[in-house]
Design a protein around this nucleic acid. Sequence first.
DNA 1: CGGGATCCTAGATGATACTG
DNA 2: CAGTATCATCTAGGATCCCG
Lengths: 132, 132
Amino acid sequence: METRKVKNAHHDTTQCYSRLNAIGDALYVLGGKWKLRIIMALSEGNLRFNELQRLVKGISPRVLSNELKELEINGFVKRHIHTEGTVLVEYELTEYSDTLGDVLYALSEWGMMHRENIRKQMRSEEVALAGE
Amino acid sequence: METRKVKNAHHDTTQCYSRLNAIGDALYVLGGKWKLRIIMALSEGNLRFNELQRLVKGISPRVLSNELKELEINGFVKRHIHTEGTVLVEYELTEYSDTLGDVLYALSEWGMMHRENIRKQMRSEEVALAGE
DNA sequence: CGGGATCCTAGATGATACTG
DNA sequence: CAGTATCATCTAGGATCCCG
């Protein structure tokens, strides 16, 4: 009930900048083509490297490797090494990835709303063009 | 109260995909280095092209022009042309940009939390290294 | 199997000059 | 003033091969 004042305090420049930076951080961590897809894949259970590569369609080993490293650094993923004769590596989501709940929810809600909106807009533009 | 079930229905694959796409849409629209900064700048009042360029530090006219076009297409910005002797162009946020409220709020909250978290993590890693 | 090393492309961004 | 045109750069991501 105090944080919600942000909307009204929108023109508090200092607040504005720190929020902008925070948003930048969030987008940095979640951005890119793969991170969310990897998280989604792992949300259905632990996976090994090649399993992940198969599940996350189209990703190359290099990119997958990089993304997993970043996800690990950012605390979303744990890497488990089982050495039973041959080496096995398993990736697992951390509880920390659950903190993304609100963000993902807000993003997906807005995204769906926006997609609808775009469709309508395109239709009305088509009509406008047809009318000329 | 029905939408909130998404978290529990996390393994509903269809739901999962449509949400993932929606999130992709949202990130696509908000992503990149400039869009949010431009929106922030415009939130303090309408601005003309060169004013914007001055306010959004470091952006080049070409990039600003492109970003504004995209923002306009996505319905965040209106472009007003006043022709009073010389041509004047003013950019204004639409009410639609207000629909971003929840998204920006969730992102900034999570971003701030995450930044704190990273700082702690880095400190503990330094300690670990110092201990070896 | 789990990646690392290399090379490559496309798109995003930047710098700067120019124009109606 | 409001951009556009042009050229340069930077980087995410992709393709492939290789190695322990």
